[in-house]
Amino acid sequence: MNKQSAIKVQNLVKHFGKDDNLVRVIENASFEIQKGEVVALIAPSGAGKTTLLMMIGCVIEPTSGEIWLGKNKVYHDKWLAKDTRRIRREKIGFIFQAHYLVPFLNVLENITLLPQANKVSEKEAQKKAMELLKYFEIDDKAYNMSSQLSGGQNQRVAIARALANNPEIILADEPTAALDGERAVSVIKMLKKIAAEQNVAIITVTHDERILPYCDRIMKIENRGIVFHDVDDEGIL
């Protein structure tokens, strides 16, 4: 395995159901994503984008195949780690279509929640959170509730939350879907910058062609397998 590899998937298979009701979603998918890379995952609706993302994120168990996260093999026909939730907590950051901030926590608490669950001290977690908020230029909102922020501000908090546990991988599920053009571009630029500066691999599921030019590669699910495209391929969506 390449030392710069962040995600490696080999012969990954995911089926749902059995016998007559068998649905083959992913068949023998193999790919590798390097650290610092931003990859767009595209496919028609129902083609298995979210399923693939959730398998990489150790949320949905594949039917068979192998998955490496960084240097660690986490799946080989079964989960190799006893606690997949711990892998997510320590290695992966998630960004969703909506911000999905915890509504009863303020901005700072939303960002420090995961690091504190990782046994980082409250003080240290808050220091890191304030740095992230400064980075995203919303440090003045640290003690606000998410209901007091705009959509764009909330999405920036959600990204800061995904970065708070120093993840090696960020999995984003249509992070710009709820944003207008300018804000969508701003978010993908931000992700691109983070990937470069923090050497984080980012996979973002998207239907939004506005953000494709800012990605390094485009990964498309075609005939249940993975095909890579250049970002300047026309009519890719």
Binding site: I92, F96, V102, A117
Partner: peptide
């Protein structure tokens, strides 16, 4: 439930 699912997805024990 939505918040709880997100917490579990993020890896909160």
């Amino acid at each position: 439930m939505k918040v709880i699912s997100i917490m579990k997805l993020m890896g909160l024990p």
